[in-house]
Simulated scan of single mutants.
Amino acid sequence: MSSKSFQGLKQQAEGAAKDAANTLGQATQDAINQVVETSQKAIDQACKTAQDGVEKATGQATEAMAGLGKNFGFKK
């Protein structure tokens, strides 16, 4: 095998290795982006659920206080 053809094979192998590394890097980045997006959606949903719970509890506490005030004659 001549030195020239060996050099050509070496360059092809290096190019293929670089392409594979780039493909792997892009696939890894895509997977990370998907995990981040999914995590953000889960966090957003948890926050909304917590906020809804706080609003419901606040409404119930307000109603309870209003009822208590009526029982003691503070409100009509």
Rank of each mutant, 00 (worst) to 15 (best):
M1L: 05
S2V: 01
S5M: 06
S5Y: 13
S5K: 07
F6P: 03
F6V: 04
Q7K: 06
Q7R: 09
Q7D: 14
G8L: 12
L9H: 13
L9R: 09
L9P: 00
K10I: 00
K10W: 00
Q11A: 12
Q11L: 06
A13V: 04
A13K: 06
A13P: 00
E14Y: 08
E14A: 07
G15R: 13
G15A: 13
A16M: 11
A17K: 11
K18T: 04
K18R: 10
A20N: 11
A20D: 14
A20F: 07
A20L: 09
A21K: 13
N22G: 02
N22S: 10
T23I: 04
T23A: 14
L24E: 15
L24C: 03
L24P: 02
L24M: 10
L24R: 11
G25F: 00
G25D: 15
Q26M: 10
T28F: 02
Q29G: 03
Q29R: 10
Q29F: 07
I32H: 14
N33D: 15
N33W: 03
N33L: 07
Q34K: 11
V35G: 07
V36L: 14
V36I: 11
V36H: 14
V36E: 15
T38Y: 08
S39I: 00
S39C: 05
S39G: 12
S39L: 10
Q40W: 03
Q40G: 02
Q40M: 04
K41N: 11
D44L: 04
C47L: 07
K48S: 07
K48P: 02
K48L: 06
T49E: 15
T49M: 05
Q51Y: 11
Q51W: 04
D52P: 03
D52Y: 02
V54Q: 13
E55T: 09
E55P: 00
E55R: 05
K56W: 04
A57F: 00
T58F: 08
T58C: 06
G59T: 05
G59Q: 13
Q60E: 15
Q60G: 03
Q60R: 06
A61E: 14
T62W: 05
T62R: 11
T62P: 00
M65D: 15
M65S: 12
A66D: 14
G67T: 06
G67Y: 07
G67F: 08
L68S: 10
L68K: 05
L68P: 01
L68E: 14
G69F: 07
K70D: 14
N71R: 05
F72M: 12
F72S: 11
F72D: 13
G73P: 05
G73D: 13
F74V: 02
K76H: 08
K76I: 00
K76W: 03
K76L: 05
